[in-house]
Every structure is written in structure tokens, then in C-alpha cells.
Write a protein that binds this DNA or RNA. Structure first.
Lengths: 206, 206
DNA sequence: TGTCGTATAGTCCATGTGGACTAATCGGTA
DNA sequence: TACCGATTAGTCCACATGGACTATACGACA
């Protein structure tokens, strides 16, 4: 029996995380996520957003808090995140942060890692580092083996790239962990900044 | 009016490219793609494979060439790629190779780049290099700007990673183009190798 | 010799995605 | 002032995905 957290899509998680900043209607979420360029991580279309919000509501992770209307425009249904929704964010990030398959999920988990305690995030990222190291070694081994068996390089372009990108990701992750170990690196909610962010949201709203 | 090439999924393209090696039934494609670890690039499940083959057949890119039966096991429907299918592979790779959105598509296009003439592949990869450079500059700019506006680093982890990975991809692509310019880099079909590969296929078949 | 797991070859269905469509309103411009 | 295009807010549908399920056959092991 799969629970709600297993069914969470990357967009679903971003919606829940966004609602932590305040109640919103789906269309506003679309605009805000686009302004913040969060659509770099997941493609955001109307269909997907409304469908996603519907699913989250059925799962009890968010709830309708009101319908208002502006002139003769379509109704706007405003949603609020529930306690279960807030907990789901933490659980999901905890689950996805160390996983090395599912790149889209990882990017979102990384962007929302600040929802976890610093120590836990560091521990999970260390697990990820170990897994990535294994994968990189295996892939690089396979690549070398293929070259040794005289497989023409022209057939190995994609593997070659993958080995290079994995190396880069390892280097980056190693650097990040080093930075996170420094207590000077700020962690956790930054309310001063959040307020300025809220102003930005109001502005985008006109 | 979208044509068949627009509707091609990464798996669809891999199926067409695979059938260039000889007629096959879907289940054999699944096995072979898994043996070659092509499921690193696209997830391969039964449902997706049979559905994909069905679509390709309706689009006229491949055709049934026979049904045989082994003992009392389920029937095996064998497919062959059509001329339209062979052309579609080239068109699709030509379209996807320079694009910098859609990472999954690019990996498959890169793996199948040898279906194009060397000069064309190089030109398309150069276009990609230019686009990637622009994107990297824009993202790095945004990142620096955010830091300058005192956005806490903890909120910028994902962007930071993206900037690093884009830099790595640029470096790799640059290196590849340099290697491809050397005439010593072999390009185009390598029949000697293909025959050994065919033997591997027979072996996997038992 | 029975049986337990895995490989073979495929079907089926619940979900999720993305793009087309609607319909009203607002801002600019000729 | 009349009209054009973009924005707002949302619905709807075709299609793609992935996982569960079926049913036979083969190999290993006890």
C-alpha cells in the first residue's frame, strides 16, 4: 500500500513547499514558479498544475480555503497546505536527497533541502556521495573495458559524456559538503529574507 | 500538423535504430537494450515497449514481418524497420542534437549521432555549444546577482549545482569537438565491429 | 520426482503529462 | 473609440508511462 509521499511528483512537492509561504490559487502558483525560474526543474503547464493540485487535495495534503471572484473573471479557488502536507515535504526530501537515479527529483529535493535539519541533510548527501562514487567507478570501468575491446569511440560518445558529468557532479558534491561543514555557512529559515521574498510575490501579483 | 518525427519518443527512436541491425520481436529488443545498458538513458518497461512499437507501426515507421511460435509459448511478432523509419532516425537526431532543453532526448541523439555524416554532426554540436554557452552565462549571471542581493546560499544550492554541471558539459563538448576535428577519429559505420556485435546478440538470445 | 524460482512474451489499466481550447478582461495604439 | 493582442483562470482530452497481471516453460535443487 503506497502512501501519499510515494505518489508525490516533483511538481506536487514544489506546490506544497510553495504553500508554506502563504495560501494561493493554482494560477498564482504557476506565475510565481515561473518568475522564480523553477520551471527549469520541472515543466509547468496548466493541465499539470490543476491536475496536481486536485491530486494533492484528494490526498489531504492541501485543502480549499475559499473561492473568490474578481469581476466577471473565472473563480479563483485558494488552497492552504495541511499539517500532513508540511510533514510530507520533509519525508519526501529525506527520501529523494540521497537517491542517484531520478535526476529531476533530486534537483527539487536539493532546492528544498533547507526544509531539513542541517545535520540530516549533510548525512543524506554523504550517502549520495558514496552511491555516486560507486556508479562513477562502474561506468568508467565499463567505458575503459569497451575501449580495450576495440569498440569504436564513435559508439561511446554518450558514455564518455556521462563519465565526465558524473566526475563533475562528484567534485561539486564534495565541495558542497566541505562548505556545509563550515559553521559559517548559514542554514535553516531566514525570516528576514523570506519577508523580502513575500514582497516580491505581492509585486508579481500587481 | 505534427508529423511522425515530432511524436517520436526517445525509446521509439532507439527501437528504430535497433531494428537497423536486423528484424526483431519486442521482447528481444527489451533484452538487448538492457544487455547494452541502454536503459541508463530511458526507462524500459514491457508496457512502454509494446505500446511504443504499436505507435511506430501505426505511423508506418516499422512493419510486421511475421509471427512465429516456439512450443506453447506466446506468439512472437517480428518487426522490420521501413524506409520511412530509417529516414525518421536521421531527421530526429538532426533535430535533437543541437537542442539544450530535453536532456533525455539529447543523450539518445548523441548515442545515435553516428547515423549522421561527421560534418553535419560536428556542425550541430557546434550550434549546441553556442546555445549552452549562452545558457551558462545567463544562469551564472543570475546566480551572482542573487548572491549580490544577499539571497542566502542555502536557497541557491540547486542553481549552484546547475552552473557547475553546465560548465562541465561545456568543457566536455569543447573537448569532443576538438577530438572530432582530428581525421584520425573514426566516423561512420564500422562493419567489422558490427559483426562482432551481432554475435553478441545471438549469444544473448541463446 | 516434485516444486520453486526465474525467463519468456505479452496484455491491461490506472495515472500523469502537455497541449489545445474557452472566455472574460485589461492595456496599448492607430 | 474601436480593435488587437496579451493576460487571467481554468477545463478537457489524447496520448505516454509504468507497474501489475497472465500463462507457459525451463532449470536447479532437495
Amino acid at each position: 500500500m503506497k502512501d501519499a509521499v510515494d505518489r508525490l511528483t516533483p511538481l506536487g512537492l514544489m506546490v506544497l513547499a510553495l504553500l508554506a509561504e502563504g495560501d494561493m490559487h493554482p494560477y498564482e502558483m504557476i506565475r510565481l514558479l515561473r518568475v522564480r525560474r523553477d520551471d527549469r526543474m520541472v515543466s509547468i503547464t496548466n493541465g499539470t498544475m490543476y491536475h496536481t493540485v486536485g491530486r494533492l487535495e484528494r490526498a489531504g495534503l492541501l485543502a480549499e480555503v475559499g473561492v473568490d471572484r474578481d469581476g466577471n473573471r473565472p473563480e479563483r479557488t485558494t488552497y492552504s497546505v495541511t499539517d500532513a502536507g508540511t510533514r510530507a515535504v520533509v519525508e519526501w526530501v529525506r527520501r529523494e536527497l540521497p537517491r542517484i537515479d531520478r535526476p529531476a527529483e533530486f534537483r527539487v529535493a536539493l532546492a528544498e533541502a533547507h526544509n531539513l535539519e542541517r545535520d540530516e541533510a549533510v548525512a543524506l548527501l554523504r550517502d549520495r556521495l558514496a552511491e555516486l562514487t560507486r556508479q562513477q567507478a562502474a561506468l568508467a570501468d565499463g567505458h575503459r573495458g569497451a575501449l580495450h575491446r576495440h569498440v569504436p569511440e564513435q559508439y561511446l560518445l554518450e558514455v564518455d559524456r556521462e563519465v565526465a558529468l558524473l566526475a563533475a557532479e562528484l567534485a561539486w558534491l564534495h565541495g558542497l559538503l566541505t562548505r556545509l561543514e563550515d559553521p559559517a555557512f548559514v542554514w535553516g529559515p531566514d525570516h528576514e529574507h523570506d519577508e523580502r521574498y513575500l514582497a516580491q510575490r505581492k509585486a508579481a501579483r500587481r
